[in-house]
């Protein structure tokens, strides 16, 4: 089964990075676009930008993570992949766990790289950049878990994509509070709590997502 899960993980990464519609580039471009627009909107004052910049990066990261939600789970249900995996005795929980890992790999590293140019656009100090990067490393696994879980729950619903976005946002608020909040007190406890929220979401998501996929098959 480990071998099969490895194959599924490889396919998931390939599909999420390259396949189906836009691939992984669009959310990253969206993220950079938000970082670029913000200085235009609030003006070039360096102090304002530096103060708000970390929070803007977090909000942009959250929105970028929402973009690919509709292609995380639903296409594979429609195509019959989940049926075929089930027939081979592969539990949905494992499949969803692999999907979370693949989703994280397809957006988080690129997002953390894109944070470098975004931090320049927003005039972040290097100390704050470090906190944002560590915060994203701690928070994005939680965002990935949340995204896949909600995608599984809304798969097959009419208007599922819009609903998924609406459902993710309130549940992502703890990540945002601790992640962006860690900038105010120079890292430390904020980052630890971001990691803790991520771990909780990672622990719940495979079971909630797996149960949702199974229930949706009917």
């Amino acid at each position: 089964m480990i071998r099969q899960l490895g194959l599924i993980l490889r396919r998931d990464i390939a599909v999420l990075l390259l396949g189906r519609q836009s691939g992984a580039a669009l959310p990253i471009l969206f993220f950079l676009a938000v970082a670029m627009l913000f200085p235009f909107a609030v003006g070039p004052s360096a102090s304002v930008l530096a103060q708000a910049g970390g929070g803007v990066i977090w909000v942009a990261a959250l929105l970028a993570a929402i973009l690919p939600l509709d292609r995380l789970i639903e296409p594979d249900i429609e195509l019959g992949f989940f049926d075929q995996w089930r027939l081979r005795g592969l539990a949905e929980e494992w499949i969803v766990a692999m999907r979370i890992l693949a989703h994280w790999l397809s957006f988080a590293p690129a997002l953390m790289l894109a944070t470098l140019p975004a931090s320049v656009l927003l005039g972040l100090s290097s100390a704050n950049l470090r906190i944002v990067e560590v915060g994203l490393l701690a928070g994005t696994p939680g965002l990935a878990a949340l995204g896949v879980m909600i995608a599984a729950i809304t798969a097959g619903l009419r208007g599922g994509a819009a609903l998924a976005g609406l459902l993710v946002i309130p549940l992502a608020v703890p990540l945002l509070i601790f992640g962006a909040g860690s900038l105010a007190n120079g890292g430390g406890s904020g980052l630890a709590l971001t990691g803790a929220v991520s771990l909780v979401l990672l622990a719940i998501a495979p079971f909630a997502g797996g149960a949702a996929v199974r229930a949706g098959k009917g």
Binding site: R11, G19, R20, E78, L79, G80, D83, L87, G89
Partner: peptide
Amino acid sequence: GTVGLIDDRLGLDPQL
């Protein structure tokens, strides 16, 4: 015994 299923869902990635 294991089950093999054929229905209208192909189970093959369309872009591959």
